[in-house]
Design a binder for these strands. Sequence first.
RNA 1: GCCCUCGUAGCUCAGGUGGAUAGAGCGACUGCCUCCUAAGCAGUAGGCCACAGGUUCGAGUCCUGUCGAGGGCACCA
Length: 564
Amino acid sequence: MPQAAIDRSLRAILSDLGVVVSEIHLERPRDPSHGDLATNLALKVASELGRAPREVAEEIAQRLNLETAGVEAVEVAGPGFLNFRLSTRTVASVLNEIAAEDKDFGRSSEGRGRSVMVEFVSANPTGPLHLGHGRQAALGDAISSLLGWTGWKVHREYYYNDSGRQMDLLALSVRARYRALLGQEEPLPQDGYRGDYVLEVAEALSKEVGTRFLEDNSDQALEEIRNFAVQILRAEQDRDLSDFRVHFDEYFLESSLYKNGLVDKTIQDLRATGLVYQHEGATWLRTTEFGDQKDRVMIRTNGMPTYFLPDVAYHKNKWDRGFERVINVQGSDHHGTMARVRSGVRALGLPEGYPEYLLHQMVRVERDGQEVKFSKRAGSGVTLRELYEEVGVDVARYFFQMRKADAQLLFDLDMALDQSDKNPVYKVQYAHARMCSIFAKARVAPEEVAADVAHLELLREDLERELVKRLGEFPATVERAANQVSPHVLSDYLEQTAGFANSWYHAGNPTRSPQLAVLVEDEALRTARLALARAVQIVLRNGLVIMGIDAPTRMVRKRDQSVE
RNA sequence: GCCCUCGUAGCUCAGGUGGAUAGAGCGACUGCCUCCUAAGCAGUAGGCCACAGGUUCGAGUCCUGUCGAGGGCACCA
């Protein structure tokens, strides 16, 4: 990459000047007259050297070996910026790198094969997944993928509570519906689950067991009902996720923490720290020791643990399984658990800031400017499946990823259902498909497109240069998105890159400027442009792969909203 | 009351570590095309970056406060 050569040259000069700098920030200036790349380096180190920024910049510019840095010109501007104009050869050589690396272009090794766990979705099996889970599924999957591309060994995990009060509530809700179905009215419990899906489970139950649970109020009967309901609802969630192309390496049951004695072990270990005390009949942990706002109850007066205890046990277990880095993707309503869990595991000797959290805000859906609120089946909200069956999985995944997690997400159904370039998802996919259609028309296999530097130097149109530069930024963009745990950084890049690619393509429309078409008569130029199209294709495809979105070679428009 | 996140164009949102004239999409407006290189293309207008202070050569970005939106502050999950 051109950045790397300049970076090396600058570092050499700096060490001659006797300055150490951890990172050199090279950016693409907005204003093209400021060159292809710019750095504020001189401004940064000027004070350390006790010299004027412009003077330092001048000296760096003078010492720079243009040839080695792959630069055609360097100039000092403004308060002391260094602006670089890349040589055409440097710009062009990017395309060969992209073609050579192909499916791996954009991968890096920053993670050095270390393990990271991403825990996400983690919904309890009490009903269908809703939009919040969808956002989380898309975000968690994309983050996992980004980490994989930057050299981490990623473990996707789903944790769920298969015991406890919510489950009992579910069982009672199902039982009430089941009995009502068989003519014996039973009121839903307070805070019971009201969605139509509970009725579906009840119907299935009655088919399975007949009237067996009509009179039986035993705990054992209730547990059977619970297990039955959980099995059905878990299966439904699995289908919802799998059809959404989200898959996990491991499903972790809360109940296993009790079965394996990890909860008991945790409370013992905590007691050994001396941070545990009794107060008004409950057992507390002094989490304020680690900056929590108040101490937390671990075991209630009635002898039952709160959720805090298994949470700590679970995260200690993550650590013990070798995950020194863990990212929990959760709704921002879980904000309160963050300080608690971190304090709890710190008491057990784990490092500060473990685990990491990515909290996302709520999702709203709008149609015709009106908020869509209801799902009869789910009882409340809109289910994930309802959404992606209407707009398609690609669109749903993209929309969930295209905003930063800590901002609320407005899901605009009118935009989502638009099948033109106005829809960012299709814009990127069209751009990819257009590149594919060029190869089809030229009757060449994309893998066989090759051009040497002499050809590539012919790419002198502004749009072409701009495109090449952008394509070269793909690996750095993937890294930034991964480091910031922010998939929207990537979707933003793809959308803009697709925009440039589309403009480039349209510019060569036969009725406008046929000399700008990819498939021009001049064979050398044609070769060069095919190589550019190939690079665009690779970058867009790799980006979409990371996002978990199809990169179609041909777009087929759906006639209407009915299922294909 | 305390804590966290957010506040940028009419709308939805980007704005690497503080850097040069604050960007994109939608919508609006103006041209162009009816080509088959795709369900159009090109361009224009639109901003007190919520507000008030501060830090500094320089603030949308950092600090303090105010206002507004969302969420969290359980022996619930």
